[in-house]
Structure formats: C-alpha cells, structure tokens
Amino acid sequence: MSQKATNVIILTIAQGVNIVLGFLFTPYLVRTLDKNIYGTFSQVNLVADVVSLVFSIAIIQIAMMLFSNTNKRFEDSIKTVILFVLYGGILGAIFCIIFSFFAPSIFKNELLGMWLKLFSFSIIGSKLNLVLNQALIRINKTKFLMTLSVCSNFTKLSLALVALKVFQSVEMLLIVYALEPIISSIIQIALLKKTQPFNWAI
C-alpha cells in the first residue's frame, strides 16, 4: 500500500474514533446540564467559533496549499503560517474579551460575559492546532497525529466528565475545552522542532 493511502486510512481512523467519542459524550452533556446552562454553553461555543472564523482568514486551506507545494521551502511556509495564526488568534481572543462586555445585553444572558472571557483564549489554540495537523501530515507523521488526536480528545472528554460529575462546574468544563487545543499545539510544535532542525526563531 502506498504511503499516501496509509496516511488517508490512519487519518480516517483518527477522525472516526473522535466522532464516536463526541457522539457518546454529547448526549451525556445535554442531559446533565440544565436547559439554560446548555444553551449558554452553546452560545459561548457559537461566538468563539464565529470570532475564530472571522480572524483566521481561511488559514487552514492556505496552510494546506503552501505545505503541499514542494517548490516552497517548508521552513518559510510553516514560520509564516504559525505567525499568521498566532496574530489572528490573539486578535480574536482580544475581540472576544471586548465582546464579552456587550454580549450579556445583546443575548439577554448575564452568564455569557464571564464564560466568554474564560473561553476566549481557546481561539488562539483552535486554528493553530489544525494548521499544525497539516504540517505533521506534510512531514509524514500521521501515526503520531492519530495518537495525539485520539489521546487529547479522550483526555479532554475525561476531564470534562470530572468537571461535571465531581465539581459540577461548567467554568471548569470551558477551561478544559479551551486548554486542549493549546496543549495539543505545544506538543505538535515540540515534535516539529525535534524533526525539523532549522532555525525556528521568527
């Protein structure tokens, strides 16, 4: 079997496992949280998703195109893309914090302000994680990517379960959800640094 076919199969398995994990956890979340709490949690996710989309400027597709172009130096491409995502993420997080002061009156929901502030830093990690996935695929580290993706998702959901069952805290759940892509990105950058011995100073 060719390397490309193996990579596709590995990534499909990883995606499948993550979908199953999410499919098992979502009904639990829905039934555990009160209607208004689940609604507010969904609103926080909605706002963070929109802000992340607006500030990312289709960087995942751009990264995919740059990394698959063999005429481009991988070193230049990855540095530029990481810088771009980081700036976009930080701007998005700042915007989200500013928006959190107006959100309670716009959505008529007092809880939203505090939760948006807590969740705002997830915007930095969410797209960075996806861009680094593309970089790891480019250097043929799909097995590592599969293991990391499944393990981080499983850990996230386990911690989310602890946050809800033991601490009954949605704030803790939001922090777990926000931290997961950031920690995952740090591990991915560490591997990239180890395998790509170029000057990483930006």
Partner: peptide, 27 residues
C-alpha cells in the same frame, strides 16, 4: 449555521437555543 445560531440565541434566548442544539444532536 452561524446566522441561524445568532438569530435563535439572540432573539429567542438561551433556552430555545438549547432546544435547537439538542434537537440537532439527536437528543
């Protein structure tokens, strides 16, 4: 997706949005 989400959660409130989301995820 986002316009629908904003209209439902902004106009009808978090309770209606929860129902919309729960419905969507088969719960």
């Amino acid at each position: 997706t986002y316009i629908a989400g904003f209209i439902i959660s902004g106009y009808f409130g978090e309770n209606e949005y929860a129902i919309y989301k729960k419905w969507k995820y088969g719960a």
